[in-house]
Design a protein around this nucleic acid. Sequence first.
DNA 1: GCCGTTTTCGGCCCGACTGTTTTCAGTCG
Length: 569
Amino acid sequence: MMMNDLVARILFEIADLLGLEGVAFKPQAYRRAAETIESLSEPIEELVADGRHANLPGVGEAIAKKIAEIVETGHLKYHDKLKANLPIDLFALTQVDGVGPKTAKLLYNELGVCNLSDLERVALAGEIRNVKGLGAKTEAKILRGLTEIRSAEGRMLLGRAQPLAQDLIERLRASGFFERLEVAGSLRRGRETIGDLDLLAIAEDAAAAAEAFVGLSDVEEVLAHGEKKSSVRVSGGVQIDLRIVPTDSFGAALQYFTGSKDHNVSLRKWAVARDWKLNEYGLFDSNGKQLAGPEEAEVYECLGLQFIPPELREDRGEIEAAEKGRLPILVEVADIRGDLHVHTDWSDGRGSLEEMVAAARTQELQYIAITDHAKFAEVIGGLTSDKLRRQLDAIAALNETLDGFRVLTGIEANIQSDGSLDMPDELLAKLDVVVASVHAHFRQSKADMTARLIRVCENEHVDIVGHPTTRKIGERTPIEADWDAVFEATAKHHTAMEINANPIRLDVNADLVRRAIDAGVKLAIGTDAHVPEHFSFMPLAVLTARRGWATKADLLNTRPPSKLQYKTT
DNA sequence: GCCGTTTTCGGCCCGACTGTTTTCAGTCG
């Protein structure tokens, strides 16, 4: 970050913090100084170097000294002191439309929101509407604001794009002008982040259909408006492209606009090698006769290939595999029987055991593993040994009352910096499922981190390594480890690698899923649900698994509870 | 905390809008 931005950011935050404390007038002073710094065209360091910064409008003696301190040390003691009472990323949070200092403080006090990812989490989970003084409309506005910020960063999370597209499609279908309407693009391929939304349609009255599209209530800007292609920006800054194609070309167009670009290039070369031509209107022979076009599956069939699921279309060997008939039969959401990573209000979750079970059952699951945080996270209510024992009794009692559903016992233990866990072995031995996760000491050396993870895999009690890379998309980079070495240990000791379904995590990602499978490692999906609504994340992890070429057999979750035992010692 | 002078202290923007609540609080411009 440029120093100017850092100085401005700190001054803005001071203004907000003082405002929250009810201090009069000072906030405006800090804000004015911040705005001055923000709009400078010269590096603030140069101004500080010869003292000119003290002459800037809005900068007096006190603020000039503070600016110098920031430039020299990178931070400001006065700012740190003010922040002690409200340790949140106030600057980032107040960038969200509809969130000011008061709302940020309220969300921190009521829901523990510290940063943008927390905000997105509670907004997606529907928790904001329940805060006194806020409501459903505020929650929706915050979600729009977050989308805007994410889109300003270029891409939005898959977990945001999906419902957005779904809603859009439902509204367009309701217009009655669309005979067919499908999502294409990276969303159809299940990429973890999405740029623009691509929609593909058949409409007899294309003009009317396009009219309905650009006339959608949330359209803020019409970028293009024609009978074949229209493009809009909806509230939140997300760009939506709609292409209306002839019936005879729909399949070819769906193929073409689903991509990826690399996959399409390879596929077109494949066609050219047969003296054919493939484009968005169809597959044509050398005489220009259409061989395929109305249905996407026919395009692949005519090319002599197995149908390649959209999730595999990244030019990563799928065309060669399809030629040989060796594409994997990818796991499907319907194959999933259980969730192996669930929290409750026994630790930092917000659903009771009973509520989480009820929600899981509505998602057609047959079992869930309750894996509340272990004691390291005592500040967020992590389980002590005693509390865990009480929970085991509660789960046993609950299971007595359940028919056709099983609650497995478990824990999400913390992997300490040396690879040991924060729960005694004698207790771990009693549990059905032990998830072990890194929650601190993210920045160890690659060698230390690798050793740390290998030691966990070797632990006879550990069934699953939770969110193995700890990355948070757009927010926290993954830890560094020699994953081939880790997977070797994982495979040897039958420790599963988690695919964490939280949209900001999707961890391990598709690339690592594939490498893990190649190394003979099993995977375990965990929604990491902290509220009942989080079970809806499950399909995101299934998509990630599919993008990693996973079959039903590669996932522990597809097994019945009686056959979950995978660990060997 | 800054600024402009009534030259060393008093003044510093506030109304529209939204959402939630029911008379107001918070955000935005």
